[in-house]
Amino acid sequence: MTDPSLPVPTGRSVIHDLGYRPYTGPRHGEGAIARALLATGVRHAFGLGRSGRSKVLPFILLAINLLPALVVGGVMVLVGATELPISYPRYASSTQVLLGIFVAAQAPVLFSRDLRHGSITLYLARPLRASTYALTRWGALLIATLVFLLLPILLLYVVALLGELDFLDQTRDAGIAAALALMLGLSLAGVAGLIASFSTRRGFAVVATIAVLLIGNGIVSAVQGIASTQGSPRVGEVAGLFSPYSLYRGLMAAWTDEVALCPPTGTAMELAYLVVMLGLSAACLAGLVWRYRKLASA
């Protein structure tokens, strides 16, 4: 206990007005600036460093997304099953609605927000090229999406190893699932980012992205369903090229034991799925760079 009657300790700090002091320390280049922007972007995608309200949606979605994996893990431990009740790549496919909502809702945080509030001007006036800004923002969205996609895979993998399932099998299956997840993440981040970069209104971007991703997938699934019952699976295979989710399902069916409606048959079709999926991501990226170069010189 200090005695309050004692005089104030002499070490007590006093505020001095030192006037303006110039900065003479180091100044990083564009690479370090982009890394800092990437880190902030990933944090902002989950609402960290922003208002309390903006943390609610991403974390609720993330929790719901992880819930099945946790339940599966619990069951595995209790029952001592000899294989995972849900396979690694099937997981992202069953939680695709959550994933779609997450990407649709958080892409505007990274893209529309700066457009809506005009803060894009402040970034463009800094030693950071418009293309670097666009690619970094996209990278942040990709990482956030991958956190969403890969966490359940990781959780299932840990549970599988704890349940003493075959290490090599599990590692191979989880690895393929991770590669598939990466491709899905690439295309979703591309599509959602590009849509959000053309919208100053968050609501519009969310609705448009959900329409393109989820409704697009619904239409493709319907076409594939009809095609398979009508006995013309080739139509279904081609239809599958038109949505990131159906591309994912097609490649999943091609690369794993999982079954999907109208999977791509033949090397040419499988290759087409792969090319379209990667090409879609590349096209979206090019679109983003073009969009921000335009904005900078407007």
Partner: peptide, 27 residues
Amino acid sequence: PEHDCLPPDVSASDFIVHLAMMSGLPR
């Protein structure tokens, strides 16, 4: 800039720190 350019959902302190880093200053 002449027009509004501040996001409403961050504090001035956080935002200015962020923009200082966007100009290349270490954290």
